[in-house]
Design a protein around this nucleic acid. Structure first.
Lengths: 189, 189
DNA sequence: CAGATAGTAGACAGACCTGTCTACCTACTG
DNA sequence: CAGTAGGTAGACAGGTCTGTCTACTATCTG
């Protein structure tokens, strides 16, 4: 196939994934990415038309991996709605431990790409919508106005940023136990 | 005093406050700040040794204004602990409406200034600590392990980012009603 | 072997960004 | 009136960043 173990494209995405997430999208230059990937600059511009396109690919890839993680971990969860909601907290806790030492990549990207027209912003927003909708569906039976679903979502988001900023010891656990209470008082089975 | 209505320093801080918040710290150059302030470049470097120092001043000033807002609005709140906690949600809701269309400046700065050693990061972290501690104190009587205080804090943080990303209709109201439930089940007066 | 495919190395243009420097100006103060 | 404090305008150096271009190489395929 190719001269190298993994293709240049793949190595570029790996490098971008690490650097953009760890140091920030704007702070990381093209040169840093290609150096880390061990790839020539022309190879980057053969696969991606611009840095922005690489940024978009980075975010898309990260979303894909997060959803895969989610599907893998949550597949077969067939308990009560309440159990399945709490499982979301557990799944996200594991993801955060493993991949989110610096907080949610989408929230960070949203903060960095202040330009509302940047396609990366749309990806970030879509990911949040997806999570929110997922929670809403799980509790839909006991949540006519959708309020509870939103509140559970708020707890997750709060835990994500709080974990990043280290304001609270074990933010995800605290969020989870708050979710338990909300589910309980809302009489979600 | 001076030849201009407001001093160059003041106008620089105003301009930096608007631009850094709206467009992002890294995306805004010195030239944009001085143009907006209507000030010569040398005036900037007479008042601030570097851009980083201006960034720090921007964050310090924003924190100061937020605390003033908070003190003004929360002073005289002498109700039950629960009422005073809910008042925090109201105060933050008004602040967010007025000054936070693009989310919390400290969370955004934290995301942008990925370098943990940047002094701006310490300011952002301190602000969060302060809010968390404030909530913890309010409910201390009914919250031996501090869990409830953390959970209330998580709801506020979640509402802040969710408002920014527009994932939920009225995030702060949803957070507030979740807080009510938590306070209720924890039997906080 | 010939050609296609994927990649490399490095120079380079052009923009932009921070920070410095000089020379000049204006208003207040003693 | 002289001095001082605060400010202006703009050129400039040095660095960095994105994106382009050229010339070369290695591997696989027909």
């Amino acid at each position: 196939m190719s001269t190298t173990r993994t293709s240049a494209r793949e190595r570029l995405l790996d490098a971008a994934g690490e650097l953009f997430y760890r140091d920030g999208i704007r702070a990381v230059g093209i040169d840093a990415v290609i150096a880390r990937a061990g790839v020539a600059k022309m190879s980057l511009y053969k696969h991606f038309r611009s840095k922005d396109e690489l940024v978009v690919a980075y975010l898309e890839r990260r979303e894909q991996r997060w959803r895969e993680h989610f599907e893998t971990q949550a597949r077969g969860m067939t308990g009560t709605p309440a159990e399945r909601v709490l499982a979301v907290f557990d799944v996200l806790a594991r993801w955060t431990e493993r991949e989110n030492p610096r907080g949610c990549a989408f929230i960070n990207a949203y903060a960095e790409l202040a330009d509302a027209d940047h396609p990366g912003v749309a990806i970030a927003r879509a990911d949040k919508q997806w999570l929110r909708d997922h929670l809403a569906e799980l509790v839909a039976g006991s949540d006519p106005d959708g309020l509870l679903g939103s509140q559970l979502f708020l707890l997750l988001e709060g835990a994500l940023v709080t974990t990043a900023m280290d304001s609270v010891e074990d933010a995800m656990a605290a969020a989870r136990s708050a979710a338990e209470r909300l589910l309980d008082t809302a009489r979600v089975a």
